[in-house]
Design a protein around this nucleic acid. Structure first.
Length: 450
RNA sequence: GUGGAUGUAGCUCAGCUGGUAGAGCCCCGGAUUGUGACUCCGGUGGUCGCAGGUUCAAAACCUGUCAUCCACCCCA
C-alpha cells in the first residue's frame, strides 16, 4: 500500500458496521444531554491560535494543530471544547438564556503520538453549565454522567472527586512553592501508576524535597475505615492549623465545604458510590473548584470522562466573571469499551433499514415501487432492489449481509392477488400478506439502544 | 518529542541459515432460473508498506522513510 492511500497519521476511516455502533453510542449520549435540558450549539473547528493557547500550558500548546490562512492569520484546530466555549460565551452572552446549559458533540484535534485509544482526530462530547456558582451544578452533571453510563450499560466504573482549592491548600501546607505547584500536582496525580518512590523521584527532579512529599502525604493520610465526610472534616482541621496565609486557608476550607455539600447530597440522589480521592488532580490548568473523573475498573482503559469547575473561564475571554462547570466524555474510549463488551452483538447491528424489497422481473417493478413508497410514508425503512435482472437468491444474500431483518418478495403471484410475501430472515419464516398486514407486522417498536 | 516492536492477498497469518510467494477465511462462478447462513467443485486476487543499497540472486541482510502497536510524556 502506498502512503498516499492511507488516512493521515492518527486519523481513521470507519466502515459501515463500525459507524453503526459509533452512531448508537453518540446518539445515546446526545439523547441524555437533551433529557437534562442541555441545548446543542456549534462553533468553528478552528479558532485563532492565540485564543486556543490562552491558558492551556506549554504541553498542550505543542499539541495544537496550527496553520496560517492566506492573510497570514495564525489559526489552530480546537483540541477540546472548553476554550472555544469561553470564547463563544463571551461573544454571544447577551443572547443566551442563563444559566446557559449547552452540549456539543464533535471532533477535536491533538498533535500527539498515536496509541490504542489515542488519535489525532477524535470525538468528544461535552455538557457545560455557565452562570451558576452553586454546587447543584456539579450534582446535576454527575447525575447526568451516571444516567448516560446506565443507558450504555456500563458497570465497571468508578467516579472520584476532589477539589482544586483543597489541593492548593495542601500544596501550601506542605511548603511547596507556588511556582512548583504544577509539577508537584502532576507527580501526585500519577501515584497510582508510578508509586510513592516514583512520585518522590519526580519531586526531586523538580527541586522539591522528599520532606515536602512526606508532609503532603501526611496531610492526606487518614485512619482506615473513615468515610469521606470524616476525612474531609479532619483535613479541614489540619489545613486550618497548617496554612498561615489567611486567603489560602479560607479557599481551602471553601473547597472542603464544597465537597462536603456534594457528598451530602449525592446520597439523596442515589450516587453514594462516588468517592473522594485526595490525590485526584486532572490536567488542564483552568479548573478552580471541584474536579471529577470517571474511570473504568479495567486499568488498561483508564479514564473515559472527566470534568470540573472553572469559574475563571469566561473572564479569561473578556466576559464578566460567571460560574462555570462542565463534563467531557471521551467518546472514542467509550466506544472501545462497548466494542470490547459486545463484540458479537456489534457485528450483527442493523445498518439502517428494516426491510428489503425484491421483485422478480421488470413486470413487478411498478408494484414494488408502490409498496416501497407506502412503507416509507409509514415510517418503515424500506430498501428497494436496484438490480435490472434480480436473482432472488443473490438479493436475499445481500439483505442478509446488510443485516436487514425482512425481505419482501414480489413476483407474478403477489401482483395478481395484490399481496406480498414477507420473509423473516432470522426465522426463515414466510407469510403471504396484504400490504396493510405487512405494515403492522414490521412497524417500528421502541427498542433500547446499546 | 524520546525509546522499543511490527508492516506479506480484502481479513488472520505462514514463509528456516538469501534461490524471484502460500494457507484459512472472505469474495466471484457453478451443482440449484421464486429463496441467504451448511456441503461439494472451480476461479479471481500480492512489484512482500515505500525508496535506496549489498548480492549472480532480497519478502528475508543494511540504510532511510511512512504507518501501526507498546512504553514514556500528556490526556478523553
Amino acid at each position: 500500500m502506498s502512503n498516499l492511500i492511507q488516512p493521515p497519521k492518527g486519523t481513521r476511516d470507519f466502515l459501515p458496521q463500525e459507524m453503526a455502533l459509533r452512531r448508537n453510542v453518540m446518539d445515546t449520549i446526545r439523547e441524555c444531554f437533551i433529557l437534562y435540558g442541555f441545548v446543542e450549539i456549534d462553533s468553528p473547528v478552528f479558532e485563532y491560535f492565540e485564543l486556543l493557547s490562552r491558558k492551556c500550558g506549554e504541553e498542550i500548546e505543542k499539541e495544537i494543530y496550527t496553520f496560517e490562512d492566506k492573510a497570514k492569520r495564525k489559526l489552530g484546530l480546537r483540541f477540546e471544547f472548553t476554550s472555544p466555549l469561553g470564547r463563544y460565551y463571551a461573544t454571544n452572552r447577551e443572547k443566551l438564556t442563563k444559566p446557559f446549559k449547552r452540549y456539543m458533540i464533535g471532533k477535536v484535534y491533538r498533535y500527539e503520538n498515536t496509541q490504542m485509544g489515542r488519535y489525532r482526530e477524535f470525538y468528544q462530547a461535552d455538557a457545560d453549565i455557565i452562570g451558576s456558582y452553586d454546587m447543584s451544578v456539579e450534582l446535576e452533571l454527575l447525575d447526568l454522567a451516571v444516567f448516560i453510563l446506565a443507558k450504555l450499560r456500563f458497570n465497571d466504573y468508578e467516579i472520584i472527586i476532589n477539589d482544586r482549592k483543597i489541593l492548593d491548600g495542601i500544596i501550601n501546607a506542605a511548603g511547596i512553592e507556588e511556582t512548583k505547584k504544577g509539577a508537584a500536582l502532576r507527580a501526585i496525580d500519577k501515584i497510582a501508576k508510578i508509586g510513592k518512590d516514583g512520585v518522590i523521584k519526580e519531586f526531586q527532579k523538580n527541586g522539591i524535597g522528599r520532606g515536602k512529599y512526606n508532609s503532603f502525604i501526611k496531610i492526606v493520610s487518614f485512619n482506615k475505615g473513615l468515610d469521606d465526610k470524616k476525612k474531609l472534616l479532619i483535613l479541614k482541621e489540619r489545613l486550618n492549623e497548617a496554612i498561615k496565609d489567611e486567603l489560602i486557608r479560607n479557599k481551602a476550607v471553601e473547597g472542603i465545604e464544597e465537597l462536603l455539600y456534594i457528598l451530602k447530597n449525592i446520597g439523596a440522589i442515589g450516587l453514594n458510590f462516588i468517592k473522594y480521592d485526595p490525590l485526584l488532580v486532572r490536567g488542564l490548568g483552568y479548573y478552580t473548584g471541584p474536579v471529577f473523573e470517571i474511570k473504568s475498573k479495567d486499568v488498561s482503559i483508564g479514564s473515559f470522562a472527566a470534568g470540573g469547575r472553572y469559574d475563571n473561564l469566561v473572564e479569561l475571554y473578556g466576559a464578566r466573571p460567571e460560574g462555570a462547570c462542565g463534563i467531557s466524555f471521551g467518546v472514542e474510549r467509550m466506544i472501545d469499551i462497548v466494542m470490547q463488551r459486545d463484540e458479537k452483538a456489534v457485528k450483527s447491528l442493523p445498518l439502517s433499514i428494516k426491510l428489503y424489497i425484491v421483485y422478480l422481473s421488470e413486470n413487478e417493478r411498478l408494484y414494488a415501487y408502490k409498496v416501497a413508497k407506502t412503507l416509507r410514508l409509514k415510517g418503515i425503512g424500506a430498501e428497494l432492489c436496484v438490480s435490472g435482472k434480480p436473482d432472488i437468491g443473490k438479493e436475499i444474500k445481500y439483505a442478509d449481509k446488510k443485516k436487514i431483518k425482512y425481505v419482501v418478495i414480489i413476483g407474478e403471484k403477489e401482483v395478481n392477488e395484490n399481496k406480498l410475501t414477507l420473509k423473516n430472515l432470522h426465522t426463515r419464516e414466510e407469510k403471504f400478506l396484504t400490504l396493510e398486514e405487512a405494515i403492522t407486522q414490521t412497524a417500528l417498536k421502541f427498542e433500547d439502544r446499546m
